[in-house]
Design a binder for these strands. Structure first.
Length: 429
RNA sequence: GGAGAGGUGGCCGAGUGGUCGAAGGCGCAGCACUGGAAAUGCUGUAUAGGGGCAACUCUAUCGAGGGUUCGAAUCCCUCCCUCUCCGCCA
């Protein structure tokens, strides 16, 4: 959420920055509401001050022995009643204004950071660096073909259980998924991340706090009987882990790693990535999340990206880092580095992690602050996948595939998976 | 799900209609005392919004939302949460 004061005092700046995202917004009406809200608040609080004075006066008069039914007190009570009426009228108007203001503010995305490259679409994203040597042989299989051969997951039966875009991992596929989650969590906790395993059903406030609501309700699954949604990413519960808190400055930065299943409706993606593990309604993800001092967040953004990259490096998966342009930024992000892993079977780089700095955007929505001397300041938040587990498995299958049909796994995974190679088996499921 | 108890500041805990943003204690910070420290003493110590260069000041907040009243932490209503017992359950 954007700062109300900025809306009142410098709407032009906001309009300019949103334009970088490709949005044309007329902020004049918003500014007007913000101004109106403040004026009403001022009027109301002055009246209340007057009412408080009268209340105190009555109390004192009665204490000094004046008859409560005396004219003096009756007149004061009348005056008090008049003020009360006026206040309630003003209050009603003020509430309307604040509600309208908040509703609009919650629907505006974050402003891009100065460093974020301007652009009109994904072609304007900028590649920052590459790591590893991508395999480019011909006749390589895509991951679902390999998985099918090795009997790692079940698609048709999953549709029977749920619907399309769900997968049931079986045999060594299930084991590999579990190994990957543990491997990632261990890698990050060894670097000082605190591990948390949050609820995956989250309430409306939590989704609003991190930016998924009110605008993207159709992207999340909602429970019909309760104010609960299936979380689309651990970013949501982790943000709200500290919602409405003031975090002691010496505790910052707080760095969390959270594994969670993630649920997305993928509305509007019909026909895209219909096979395999790339785009599912439910997938596993290990998420990195930082709460930090505003002054540290730029540096933190590089660190969280490096920490996500470390997983790919340990798994010997070639990748590139993309600096998303303003048009491609997510709603809450001020700047985002995407990590794209090389999929030799698909002959393409695919997003496997998205590392964003959100500045104070989520902190303001969620009211997460810290003390800077006597000042109370909003913290900055950052998040990054470390990594999306299903896509990691896809990458391992495609990158490790051998001509004999087996898949060689990276050394780092052996302690977790138990062996170095996936081979044709007689399915035990 | 049923029955009962309760939700007050960073923590403990007083406060059942009147100047209460809230006694007292703990904790924390500063100062004094000390060779240094402990102990002691003094002072300060919530959040949000508005006004002011500032000192400061106004408003709101005692789980949340309504209501009664000139005036509510205190009375009334609704909801939420926590605890204890019973039931159910992985």
């Amino acid at each position: 959420m954007l700062d109300q004061r900025l809306v009142r005092e410098n709407p032009t700046l906001i309009a300019l920055e949103l334009e970088r995202r490709g949005m044309q917004v007329d902020l004049a009406p918003l500014q007007q509401i913000a101004q109106q809200q403040r004026d009403l608040e001022e009027k109301r609080s002055n009246l209340q001050a007057e009412g408080n004075r009268i209340g105190k006066q009555v109390g004192q008069l009665i204490k000094t022995g004046l008859d409560p039914t005396s004219n003096e007190i009756i007149n004061l009570r009348k005056e008090g009643n008049l003020i009360k009426q006026e206040v309630s009228l003003l209050e009603e108007e003020e509430k309307k204004a604040s509600f309208a203001l908040k509703e609009k503010l919650l629907s505006l995305p974050n402003l891009p950071s100065k460093e974020c490259p301007d652009g009109k679409g994904e072609n304007d994203n900028q590649e920052i660096r590459r790591w590893g040597n991508p395999r480019k042989d011909n006749n390589l299989f895509e991951h679902w073909e390999i998985a099918d051969q090795l009997k790692l997951f079940e698609t048709e039966r999953s549709a029977r259980i749920s619907q399309s875009r769900f997968v049931t991992l079986i045999n060594e596929g299930a084991r590999l998924e579990r190994a990957l989650i543990n491997f990632m969590l261990d890698l990050h906790t060894s670097k000082g991340y605190k591990e948390i395993l949050p609820p995956v059903l989250v309430n409306t406030e939590s989704l609003t706090g991190s930016g998924q609501l009110p605008k993207f309700a159709d992207e999340s699954f909602k429970c019909a009987e309760d104010d609960l949604w299936l979380t689309p990413t651990a970013e949501v519960p982790v943000t709200s882990f500290h919602r409405n808190e003031i975090i002691a400055s010496e505790k910052l930065p707080l760095r969390y790693v959270a594994y969670s299943p993630c649920f997305r409706r993928e509305a509007g993606s019909y026909g895209r990535d219909t096979r395999g593990l790339i785009r599912l309604h439910q997938f596993n993800k290990v998420e990195l999340y930082w709460f930090c001092h505003p002054e540290q967040s730029e540096k933190a953004h590089k660190e969280i990206t490096n920490d996500a990259e470390a997983v790919l490096q340990a798994l010997e998966l070639p990748y590139r880092v993309i600096d998303l342009c303003t048009a491609d930024l997510g709603f809450s992000a001020a700047r985002t580095f995407d990590l794209e892993v090389w999929l030799p079977g698909a002959n393409a780089y695919r997003e496997i992690s998205s590392c964003s700095i959100c500045g104070d955007f989520q902190a303001r929505r969620s009211s997460i602050r810290t003390k800077d001397g006597k000042m109370t300041k909003l913290v900055h938040t950052l998040n990054g996948s470390g990594l999306a587990v299903g896509r990691t498995m896809a990458a391992l299958l495609e990158n490790g595939q051998q001509s004999d049909g087996s898949v060689v796994l990276p050394k780092a995974l052996i302690p977790y998976f138990g062996k170095s190679r996936l081979q044709q088996i007689k399915s035990i499921v």
